[in-house]
Design a protein around this nucleic acid. Structure first.
Length: 363
DNA sequence: AACACGTGGGC
DNA sequence: TGCCCAAGTGT
């Protein structure tokens, strides 16, 4: 690691901080979570922004804060409502952890978000990046907030050739930021690095001629900005075959709640079972699975269509069937018969929103 | 350390 | 189309 940071001492730290913060002061985007430094709002925004683009987050953030304006509002909310507010954002454990952590802040910290690295890091869903981001932005504490942007920008500034896909590499960048961070304005320093990564120092074809810190950039001087950062590529998604059934009963349909752990936890869907591809269209086999796993007696009708959905780590291939009940449903916490007006109250993952849109219409 | 965990946009 | 990516964390 010492060798990977060999250029650190060559940076004119004061000039770098000044040029970076000056640029951010003038060019930062007007974003809803930048209106004040309310630690709760900063927290919510940082959780939403994990692995998620700014443009995607903006409307979710505005609705979320309108619906849950304070820590107490979120702590006291029904989980179903919270999940519905997150519907479509993905990585749903983020919001489960957020609500759990907010309850802890309410009970253990009197409703005040902790302002030390040690305490804030114990909260569920708050890892090293989010801890540093909240501490620096909301409280002005000079802690690093190393995300993908920061690794990309700093790998170019300091010409660091470590693989940023490796978990251990983050420490190299934290060490660099501890050395480089402005103690005058850690909030702007951290945000400026991320903003620079988003607007100028982009993954492909960075706009070096517009960059406020190009004269401090080792990669620019060497002409290797397009070779950095080094990042090994992810492996391909695993294929999963599913069968879903849309059941029409009068003006209603049947929905089922997913497991409380794992993929899309606690979200609702049309009754769905995993099938091995040879049996994709074997109706009696799918009917048996629906009975065993969900407890519904269904007569499958025709296959009405197919939905494909790609996750980060797997690919769903859903065969959609029509079906009717052979026996009445016994509703419980995880199984409901709902009307079109009611179904919109339940949080659905995107693949099943696609089914709703294409194969489930009222009338 | 490696993998689970979502989604939509860009090229 | 397919692949990469975007303000990561938990296990």
């Amino acid at each position: 690691m010492t060798d990977s940071l060999k250029n650190l001492k060559l940076v004119n730290k004061d000039a770098f901080q000044h040029d970076l913060i000056e640029w951010f002061s003038n060019e930062q985007r007007d974003l809803p979570w930048r209106k004040d430094k309310n630690p709760y709002k900063v927290w919510v925004s940082e959780i939403m922004l994990q692995q998620t683009r700014v443009d995607t987050v903006i409307p979710y953030f505005n609705r979320f804060i309108e619906q849950f304006p304070t820590i107490n509002d979120l702590a006291d909310a029904e989980e179903e409502k919270v999940l519905k507010a997150w519907e479509g954002l993905g990585y749903y454990s983020r919001v489960r952890n957020l609500q759990s952590a907010v309850k802890e802040v309410k009970e253990k910290y009197g409703g005040k978000v902790p302002d030390t690295k040690e305490e804030i890091s114990t909260l569920k869903g708050v890892g090293p990046y989010t801890a540093g981001a909240i501490l620096s932005i909301a409280y002005g504490v000079p802690e690093p907030a190393v995300d993908g942007n920061v690794m990309r920008v700093i790998s170019r500034i300091l010409s660091i050739w470590e693989d940023i896909a490796k978990p251990s590499t983050r420490k190299t960048f934290e060490t660099a930021i501890y050395e480089l961070i402005s103690h005058e304005n850690p909030s702007y320093f951290n945000q400026a690095l991320m903003e620079l990564g988003a607007l100028i120092c982009t993954p492909t074809s960075p706009s070096c001629l517009l960059c406020p810190v190009r004269e401090h950039c080792h990669a620019f001087h060497e002409g290797v900005e397009n070779e950095l950062p080094v990042k090994t590529k992810a492996k391909k998604q695993r294929q999963v075959q599913l069968a879903s059934v849309v059941i029409r009963e009068d003006e209603k349909t049947v929905i089922h709640k997913r497991s409380s752990s794992g993929l899309l936890a606690n979200l609702w869907e049309f009754p769905t079972v995993e099938v091995t591809s040879p049996f994709m269209f074997d109706k009696s086999y799918v009917e048996a699975l629906l009975m065993e796993e969900i407890g519904i007696e269904v007569k499958l009708g025709q296959a009405v269509g197919k939905i494909e959905h790609v996750f980060s780590h797997l690919k769903w291939d859903i065969q959609v069937f029509e079906g009717e009940l052979k026996a009445p449903i016994k509703e419980d916490e995880n199984l409901k018969v709902v009307s079109p007006e009611e179904i919109v109250e339940y949080p659905f993952p995107v693949p099943h929103q696609k089914i709703m849109k294409q194969y489930y219409h009222e009338e």
